[in-house]
Amino acid sequence: MRKSGASLESVPELIARWSAHLGLVVEVKAAPSGDEEAFPNRLAISGPDAGRFAADRGVALDALQFLVHEAQGEREDQKLAYLDVKGVRLFRMQEVMAMGRFAADRARELGSHTLGALSPRERRWVHLVVSREEGLGTESEGTGTFKPVKVFRK
């Protein structure tokens, strides 16, 4: 087990300090996602330089997310901070969960439906939304980081 580091409450100040060292002016505040089970502890990054983290498909935001998780030293989703800029990740969560509901409807109708390759977090969202549906199951298929998800009747 990893030793605990930065608390969830200290993460906004930590991000602002790291950003200031890079010459970036950002503000970080807690912002509920509307579905805390799927997207817990959402921290919204705003300010004049926040868009830099969203550039290039969010590569800098992914790197910052990794550093924050390392600083926190946690591995439980409910204790980790999850970063968002301009609502991009919140929108993606809502989009993927809608895809999961669509796949659930198709699986009820046809017996199964397979969604294209998704990242681990996106697959988790699909598994979560389908688990809330009666009589359906999910399964990730294949190998690698990005995998398809099959939704099927039990």
Rank of each mutant, 00 (worst) to 15 (best):
K86M: 05
H21T: 05
T143W: 12
G144I: 12
R52T: 01
H69Q: 11
L83A: 09
L110R: 15
M93W: 06
S46V: 04
R2D: 01
A71E: 13
A44P: 01
E27G: 09
V129R: 15
R124G: 10
S119T: 11
D84K: 12
L22S: 09
E36P: 05
V11L: 05
G34M: 12
S119K: 12
K150A: 03
R123W: 12
A117M: 02
D56K: 11
M97C: 09
M1Q: 08
K86A: 11
A31P: 03
A6L: 10
A50E: 06
D49I: 06
M99A: 12
Q94A: 07
E141N: 06
G5Q: 12
R42D: 04
R132C: 08
E133Q: 07
L61P: 07
V85G: 09
A117L: 03
F53V: 08
T145D: 15
G58E: 12
L80G: 10
E141R: 03
E122C: 14
S131R: 15
T138V: 03
V96C: 12
A30Y: 06
V28L: 08
P32Y: 04
R75E: 11
H69A: 06
A98Q: 14
N41Y: 13
M97I: 05
E141V: 05
I15E: 02
F39L: 02
L115M: 04
E141P: 00
R123Q: 13
R2G: 01
A38H: 00
V26R: 01
A54E: 11
Q65T: 10
H127I: 09
S33L: 10
G87E: 14
M97S: 07
H69M: 08
A55C: 11
L24E: 14
R123M: 12
E139Q: 01
G111V: 06
R106G: 07
A44F: 05
A81T: 05
V68H: 03
G5T: 14
E133H: 00
R101A: 02
F146I: 08
L128R: 15
F66G: 13
I15Q: 00
V25A: 15
G137D: 02
Q72K: 10
A16M: 06
P48Y: 05
A103C: 00
R2N: 13
G51S: 12
S46C: 08
L90V: 07
G137W: 03
T143V: 15
L80Q: 08
L110Q: 15
P12R: 13
A104L: 02
E70D: 08
T114Y: 00
V26N: 04
N41P: 01
V88L: 14
Q78F: 15
R123Y: 11
L8P: 03
T138W: 09
H127C: 13
R92E: 07
V25Q: 14
P32F: 04
E141D: 01
A63Y: 08
M1K: 04
Q65Y: 09
H69N: 09
A104M: 03
F66P: 01
G34D: 08
E13P: 05
E74T: 06
A6D: 02
A38W: 03
K79H: 09
R42I: 00
E76L: 02
M97Y: 05
F152D: 05
L115F: 06
K147Q: 13
A54N: 14
E13R: 15
S4T: 02
V149T: 04
G137L: 01
A81P: 00
T145C: 15
L67C: 12
R75I: 11
L61M: 11
R123H: 10
L115N: 00
M93V: 06
L24I: 00
R2E: 04
E141G: 01
L80T: 09
G58S: 15
W18G: 03
